[in-house]
Design a binder for these strands. Sequence first.
DNA 1: CTTAATTTGTACGTATGTATT
DNA 2: CAATACATACGTACAAATTAA
Lengths: 235, 235
Amino acid sequence: MEGFTPLRPSAKLADEVTSALAARIASGELMPGDRLPAEKELGVSLGVSRSVVREAISRLKHDGLVETRQGAGAFVAGPQSAKSFRLQPTGADVAPDLAHIFELRCEVEAGAAAFAAERRDAADLVQIEAALTAIQLAMEAGRDGVAEDKALHVAIAAASGNPAFVRFLDFLANQLEEAIRAARLNSLKVAGRPMAVQREHRRVVEAIQAGDSAAARTAMAAHIRAAAQRLGVAR
Amino acid sequence: MEGFTPLRPSAKLADEVTSALAARIASGELMPGDRLPAEKELGVSLGVSRSVVREAISRLKHDGLVETRQGAGAFVAGPQSAKSFRLQPTGADVAPDLAHIFELRCEVEAGAAAFAAERRDAADLVQIEAALTAIQLAMEAGRDGVAEDKALHVAIAAASGNPAFVRFLDFLANQLEEAIRAARLNSLKVAGRPMAVQREHRRVVEAIQAGDSAAARTAMAAHIRAAAQRLGVAR
DNA sequence: CTTAATTTGTACGTATGTATT
DNA sequence: CAATACATACGTACAAATTAA
């Protein structure tokens, strides 16, 4: 018989429509400048109400993928007007490659450490030192210390004096955790060799304390690469 | 006289509501786990219909800022569930600092060049060389060559073998152009000293051709920093 | 220039499934 | 179990803007 695909109840209709439209744009089926079908028309062709279509288009508009003009219609926007960055684009079905994310993170994290070595002030150094000892205490207490590890990286990024580093690294770290969970890897960042991890941390912090930008960069890059290898996602 | 703000007709209601809610979340007025007012309630308190509120919440949900449970309500999500990265967060009113964006771009672009030097294949080298000569031709023809310049950077990023670099650098470049336009700077990237720019390009390309990862990194970093200085947005 | 048709923007009403009390 | 609150979804209606006749 078949004949019905009443839409998985778990996935909301607006999500489905958003993905469908985004996929059509990403695939090139809809080119920049093209007009989308009218909301009413999209509704009947997809079998959903106009409200659902409006929510989906509203999301795409917010991401800069489409632009709407009242009375005229909705148009595919050029790639230069994207307002948000996603590691997994909306319409995509494949998960992003963990190794690729790690490489991106490695560059940014190393850069943040280098800037931190140049610009850190007394308050930054206090924060960094405190985070380092917090990891030590967590390890000695038998806990995994992932929260403390995260705090150290945040403190270093903050010492760079560039909030864009802080926000982007936070975003990347969260996406990484999500992807690691999805891949069912051992999520404990410091699992296996907590001593080695802490040694890497100390090298980074010492370089920042010494104001050695180049050393901070290489030490942090080595740390991130080692983390990727511990997870088995290195190149 | 002033006295009236009957909603700017240019700004759509859904945009306003989205910004208002995002600002409340960013400011900490709404903490993770907090429940948002009911849609109906938000509608009356903001003076808009429930459809508008739904569109706004739908956007925030898509960005991972809130999560909704049917029958329960809409809740502020933790910062770890963000699904998109924006240089200018939704509720923010201040434009991001150009120097900060340039620093972030510098790190990623330099990293992409370094990976390109390690991994480029024959096809990549052809693309890169073609882009370099295209810039030369554009300059000799008296055109600004910004499109050709962009193509070179895309080719280098693609040669890195990491699509995350390509997509993020594309995002950053577009955001940078947008911010430069908004700041009313001279948007011509190669304005002033096209010869110097091309010399910088050639150094990067030669390092990639030679497979010298470290040289490609430093050359690209110098190029981006010089570009920032030409715009007068360096530190 | 005026008129009419189309389309988005906004508002409101209703029904249903779900969660909480 | 029952009642209430809420998100989800659909439908209708009108205003505002655009476009074409």
